[in-house]
Write a protein that binds this DNA or RNA. Structure first.
Lengths: 364, 364
DNA sequence: CTGAAAGCGCTAACAA
DNA sequence: TTGTTAGCGCTTTCAG
C-alpha cells in the first residue's frame, strides 16, 4: 500500500495499476472491461478480480478523448420549471442512465439566445446525440448538429430535415376530442389560449383547434384566440383579458396544463366557477392535473412515450452506420382526451339563453 | 479548404489547425485562449482571428483529461418531479453555466440505491464539486467524495463533516411562524404531515413542529403526526387517513407544498372546504403555491438562495487551496411564513364547541 | 489471443 | 515571451 508522500489521498489507480495487479498488459485490461469476446477467460477473471480489489473504474474523460464518444446525451427543453418537462426528463434520465449515458440538460426559456447557447454547450461537450424537446426548432441549429454528425431528434408535425429523426405528435386527435366533447356538452363559444406562437408546436395546436372547431361546425372568434406563454402567469393574464371582453365564451381550451391552472386561478379570483361558469380543458396531462380543484380535463400527451422514443431513436442512429438507421425515422406520438371535472354543461344550458344579465350580475 | 476524401464532414479543426493558421505554436494558442497574460498582443490577435475564422473551440474532453478539471458540477436532488427542485435546478444551472460549468443532475427518488448510483455517476464523471440537495445525506457518500477530494455542499441543520460545507436551513423559524399564526387564529388541534422520515430534513421539520407546538402551549396528538412522502399522492393519502380518525384536527401543516396540494385534493373529494373546515399550511413556497385554489399559505424557503449559496460555496472550495477556503463553511438559509388563503378561523370558532355532530353530518 | 506502441487534443514544464 | 516536448488515461492498430 503506497500513498503519496504527504496527503492522505488514495493511490489513484488507473488502467496500468490494474494491469500490473492482474499481471497482464493494459490492452488486455481494456479489452476485458470493454467486453471484447476474444479475451482468454483466465486472464479476464484475473482482470475482473483486480478491478474489484482495486475498486477501479475507467476514466471517462480519457475514454471519451480517444474514442470520440462522450457517452453524453443532450436534452434541450423549453422550461424546466413547467412540470411537464421534469416528468419527461425523469423518464429520459432513467433510460439514458440505464444505457450508460449521462444527460446534459439545457433549458431555453423560450429565448432564442438561450437556445443557441444550449446548442453550443452541447456541441462543446461533444454530446453523442441531442433530443430537442422544445416544440419548435430553428433550422440553423439542426444544421450545426448535422455538421458535426450528431444525431438529433426533435418534436414536430412534419418531417423535412435530412439527418435527424422526428417525433410526430398528433396534436389534432386530442384537440379534436376536446372540441367534440365540449360541443356535445352544448358549448358553442370556445376560447383558446395558445402557447408562444413562435413555437411551431404552439402554432400547430392553435391551428388544430381552429380546424377542429370548423369541423364541429363552430365559428371561432378572434377575440377568443389569445396568445399565452405556457406558464401559470400567462394563463391567468389571458383569462383576465377574456373576462374584460364584452362577450364571453362558455369554455376555454389551453395549449398546456400550466396555462389552464392559471386560468382556474383567474376564475377563482373573479369568483367564477369551473365548470359551472366556464368549462376548461388543458393539454399535456401532467400529474398535477389530477390534483387541481376541480381536477382538470385535459389532453394527454405521454411524456413516457416521448422520452422512450427519443432515447431509442437517438441510440439507434448512433450505431456505426450500417445504412439501415440512416434514413431519418419518424415516430408517431398519440394524444387523447382525459375527461375529469373541469368540463360540464354551459351555463344556463337548460334554462334558455339569457346569459348576459347573469354574467353582469355575477361580475364583481 | 480540405475535406475528407469521401464524406462531406467538416475539416475537424483542432488546436494545431489554429496554430498553423495563425502562424504560431500550439502553446501560444493554448495560452491565448486561456487568457494567460504574458502573450504578445500581436500574436494573441492573430490567434483570436484564426479562432474566429475557423470557428474553433477547444475539446473539452482533452482539456479535462490533462487538467484534471472536468468543469462539471454534480447536482443531486431527491425528486426532479417535485416542482421545488426544478426551480432550484433552474437557478443552479444559470449560475453554473455563467461560470463556465456544466451540471450533471441526479434524482434519487428517495431511494438509497439510486442515491448511491447517482454518487457513483458523479464520481465517474469526475465532477469538480457536488451539491447534494436531497435533504438528508448518508455519511459514507460524503466519505467517497472526500476520498477523491471533491468539494461537497449539502443541506443540513448541524455541521459535522470535515471536508464539506453545509447550507444550514432554519426550518424552525418558518414553522414556528406557521404554528403561531394558526394558534393566533384559534387553532388548538393541529396535524402535521411529514416527509419520509429517513430524510434528516423531514425529521427535523417534524421535530421543529413538535417543539413549536410545545412553545405555543399546544399538545400534539400522535394520531395527527403522519408520515408522508413529499408528493401529491402521499399528501392525499395522509389526509384521507386523518379523515378516518374519530377526532379531527382543525388545521394541518405539511412538510412541503406538494403534500399540501394533495391534502387540498383529499379535502375537495371529501367535500370539505379550505380554510372553512380545515386550515392548511405548506412548506417551500413553490411558484404553484400561489395558484392553488385557494392559494396556499406556506413557509417559504428560497431556492434561489439555496442555489446561489451552493454554487458559490462549491466554487470557493475549488480554488487552488490557499488555506482560507479550507475550513468547511456554513451558510444560513432563512424560512418565513407567507400567508395566503388556506388559513382561517377554526370551524365554529365563534359558535362554541359542538363540532363533532357537524362533522358527522358533513361526512359523506 | 496477447502485448507493444501510437496517438486522441490539450496543458504545463522546460528551454531557448 | 515563445516554442518544443512530455504526458493525462485510455483505445486500437499491428506484430507476434
Amino acid at each position: 500500500m503506497k500513498r503519496s508522500p504527504k496527503g492522505g489521498t488514495a493511490p489513484k489507480i488507473d488502467i496500468r495499476g490494474v494491469a500490473s495487479h492482474a499481471r497482464v498488459s493494459i490492452a488486455t485490461v481494456s479489452r476485458t472491461i470493454n467486453h471484447v469476446p476474444t479475451v482468454d477467460p483466465v486472464l479476464a477473471a484475473r482482470v475482473w478480480k483486480a478491478v474489484a480489489e482495486l475498486n477501479y473504474f475507467p476514466n471517462t474523460q480519457a475514454r471519451a478523448l480517444v474514442s470520440g464518444k462522450s457517452k453524453l446525451l443532450g436534452l434541450i427543453v423549453s422550461e424546466i420549471t413547467n412540470p411537464f418537462f421534469p416528468e419527461l426528463i425523469s423518464e429520459f434520465e432513467q433510460i439514458a442512465v440505464a444505457r450508460g449515458y449521462e444527460i446534459l440538460i439545457g433549458s431555453t426559456n423560450y429565448e432564442p439566445k438561450t437556445m443557441e447557447l444550449c446548442a453550443r454547450r452541447m456541441l462543446e461537450r461533444k454530446v453523442d446525440g441531442v433530443a430537442i424537446m422544445t416544440f419548435g426548432v430553428e433550422e440553423f441549429l439542426l444544421d450545426r448538429f448535422a455538421a458535426d454528425d450528431i444525431p438529433v431528434i426533435f418534436i414536430d408535425v412534419a418531417s423535412k430535415q435530412p439527418r435527424s429523426s422526428i417525433l410526430a405528435v398528433d396534436y389534432r386527435a386530442g384537440i379534436n376530442e376536446g372540441v367534440q366533447h365540449l360541443a356535445v356538452l352544448g358549448h358553442r363559444k370556445i376560447a383558446f389560449i395558445s402557447g408562444p406562437l413562435k413555437l411551431r408546436s404552439a402554432e400547430t395546436r392553435k391551428n388544430a383547434f381552429i380546424e377542429c372547431m370548423r369541423l364541429a361546425g363552430l365559428s371561432v372568434e378572434q377575440d377568443w384566440l389569445i396568445e399565452g406563454n405556457h406558464d401559470l402567469d400567462s394563463g391567468r393574464d389571458a383569462m383576465q383579458k377574456i373576462l374584460e371582453l364584452p362577450n364571453w365564451p362558455t369554455a376555454v381550451m389551453c395549449s398546456n396544463d400550466m396555462t389552464a391552472i392559471g386560468v382556474q386561478h383567474a376564475l377563482f379570483e373573479a369568483k367564477l366557477r369551473v365548470p359551472d361558469d366556464f368549462s376548461l380543458i388543458g393539454f399535456d396531462d401532467v400529474h398535477l392535473a389530477e390534483y387541481t380543484i376541480p381536477p382538470l380535463t385535459t389532453v394527454r400527451m405521454s411524456c413516457k412515450d416521448l422520452a422512450q422514443a427519443a432515447v431509442s431513436s437517438l441510440l439507434a442512429h448512433m450505431q456505426p452506420t450500417e445504412g439501415r438507421a440512416e434514413a431519418h425515422s419518424k415516430t408517431r406520438i398519440q394524444t387523447r382526451l382525459i375527461v375529469r371535472q373541469t368540463t360540464g354543461l354551459p351555463r344556463h344550458a337548460l334554462s334558455g339563453i339569457v346569459p348576459r344579465l347573469h354574467r353582469k350580475k355575477r361580475r364583481r
